[in-house]
Each structure stands twice: as C-alpha cells, then as structure tokens.
Simulated scan of single mutants.
Amino acid sequence: MEQLNNAFTLFLSLLVEAIPFLLLGVLLSSLLLIFIDERWLITHMPKHPVLGAFAGSCIGFLFPVCECGNVPVARRLIMQGVPMPVAIGFLLAAPTVNPIVIWSTWIAFHDRPEIVILRVVFSLSIATIVGYVFSVQTDLKPILQPAIALGTIRAQPKISTGSSLLDGGDFMLGSGGVAAKRMTQDLIQPPQKSLRANFDLVLDNVIQELRELGGILVLGSAVAAAIQTLTPRELIVSLGEGPILSIVVMMILAGSISICSTVDSFFALSFAATFTSGSLLAFLVFGPMFDLKSIGLMLSIFKPKAIFYIFAIATQLTFILTLFVNFHVS
C-alpha cells in the first residue's frame, strides 16, 4: 500500500510539473498560427542543413519550453514547412538550451560551472548533428505521421504537375483525407481574419492539441512513476561507480523517471557525491531529449522508425561525449 501511495504521489508530481509547460508549448504553437507566417520562417532560416540545424537548436532561447512543451511547437513548425533539420534541432535542444533551464542548472551546480557549460554545448552539438543527418531525407512521408506529412505538403510551394499535391495527401490519408484536408488548410495557411476569428482558431487548436497530447502525457507519467517506485535508489547508486556503467545507469534513469528539464538538475545534484561528472551530464543531456513522456509525445509527429533512428543517434552521441568527460575532464 505504501508503494502504491508513493507511485500515485510521484504520478501527480510529474503531472503538476509537466502540465504547465505542456500548456505553454501548446499555447505558443497555436499562436504561431496567427503571428508567424510559414513563408517568413522558411525565408529567414538558413538553407544549409548544418546551419539550419544549429539555428533550430538555438530557437529554445525564444521558446523556453521543456520536453513536454517543445513537441507541439516542433509539430507546428514542421506543419508550417520549416526544414526538417531546423525542427529536429529545436525538438532536441529546446528543453535544455533555454534561459529557464540554464538558470536552474546554474543554481544547482554553481560550484561546478563546467556542468552548466558542457550541458549546453553537448545539447547543441547532438541536436545539430541529428538534425543534419535527417537533412538527407528529402521525402518526409516515410518518417512523419500522415496528418503531419500532409501539412508539410500543403506548406510547400505548389508545383505544376498532372495531379494536385492535396490529392496526394488525400491518397496518403485514405478515407480521412477530406477531414485532414480541411484541418490542414485551416491550421497551416489560415486566411486573414478578425480578432475574434483568430482567437477562436487559437482556442480550437489548443483544445485539439491538449486532447491529443494530454492523454499521452498522463500515460507516460503513470509508467514513469511506476518504474521510479519499483526501482530501489540504493541499487541505482551502487551501479554508478564505474566511468562506463555510471553513464549507462544515469541515461536509463533519465529516460525512465521523466523529470522535467527545468528541475532535473536538482535531482542530478543528489547523485553528485557518488556519480561521475560524465554520468551527471548524461542524465542532464539525454533526459530532456528522450524520456517516456517525450517519446509518447513524439509519436504524434514521427513514425516509430524515425523515432528509433533519432533515439539511436542521440544515445550514441551522448554516451561518447560524456565518456570523454569521464576519462579526460573529470
């Protein structure tokens, strides 16, 4: 009974932490509908894949959201036609490379400034590399969910061919094409409307995204709370003595407990006396990119195969960079 109470308490705490940032991300993504023109974004973002991925990784300074709120913003950017390297760079780096998280990390590790600096540098590097890798994927339909892929098609300039781009999207979505066509046309390229009409558009989109993403967030929080309750912390600490094993343990821990990036530095601080610097960085860098909640939310954008590749590349890069810290910096 005590474990059940602890799991329920953790479940509620995860929701209390995450829901405000999910609301913020959904609100920001909805405001993009009326305040940011997708043509402006495409024009002003760097065309070079490396520069585009790096620019996307730095957008977190403008949109300070955690790993719960960054998904709806990234989804809106993709549906507005922003290049994939930019969107993936934002998706992976925004939960860490933003003023709120940098400030909270500094408060927790003010006596170890290298942790703060390397967290930002590693997050920017990994997000830029992953974004660049996905720049070679010119056809987005194999990696995006059908409705999102249809949105990107609608956002692209129309090419004079024998068939309509929108018809292609209808074929891809099957019988749901008509409804998706209407939704995409309203959300991706909304006409100029009155203030009341724009407010209704934003409100409708907020409700739609909260209904979709909120359920995934609740499920992910429940799984994370169960794992955190059933795994004794003493066992985790005992596994964190080696330079390699400690990194693996902290990456698994970061992915399973799903702590919000705005407060995860204080959780990592409790392991600072027993874990290596590289393993602490692995927790702080990898967790905001991939945890149980964010993977569930990413499924609203990407197909499982694409998420696997993003996860695999980010995992390897995190391990290599933090292992270098353990052997050469610590």
Rank of each mutant, 00 (worst) to 15 (best):
A53F: 03
L239T: 05
P232W: 09
I100H: 04
G168N: 12
S294M: 13
L31K: 03
C66A: 15
I126P: 07
A108T: 07
I313P: 10
F327A: 03
E241M: 06
A224F: 00
I126R: 12
M289I: 10
V133G: 06
V133P: 00
I188H: 02
F266M: 13
Q80S: 08
F283H: 00
R76Q: 10
H328I: 12
L91T: 11
P190Y: 03
V130N: 06
T128Q: 09
C68W: 04
S300H: 11
L210H: 03
I295R: 03
V329W: 15
V263H: 08
S261F: 02
L144N: 04
M289W: 03
Y132P: 05
T318Y: 05
F63R: 06
G177S: 05
I88H: 08
L210C: 09
I126H: 11
V206R: 02
W106H: 15
M250E: 03
D186A: 14
S160L: 12
A149P: 01
G215L: 14
S300E: 05
A222G: 08
L297N: 05
T318V: 08
S123L: 03
G255S: 06
H44I: 09
V248Y: 00
L280S: 08
H110G: 07
G215S: 13
L173Y: 05
V116P: 02
L165M: 11
E212Y: 12
E212P: 02
A312K: 13
T152W: 02
M45K: 00
L10R: 07
F35E: 08
R119H: 07
R112S: 14
C66L: 06
P72A: 08
W106P: 01
Q156R: 12
L297M: 15
I207M: 10
E212A: 14
P72L: 07
L22I: 08
S300F: 08
F283E: 01
A87W: 04
I257H: 02
P243F: 12
Q145K: 14
S277F: 05
S164A: 14
H44C: 06
F275N: 01
I102M: 14
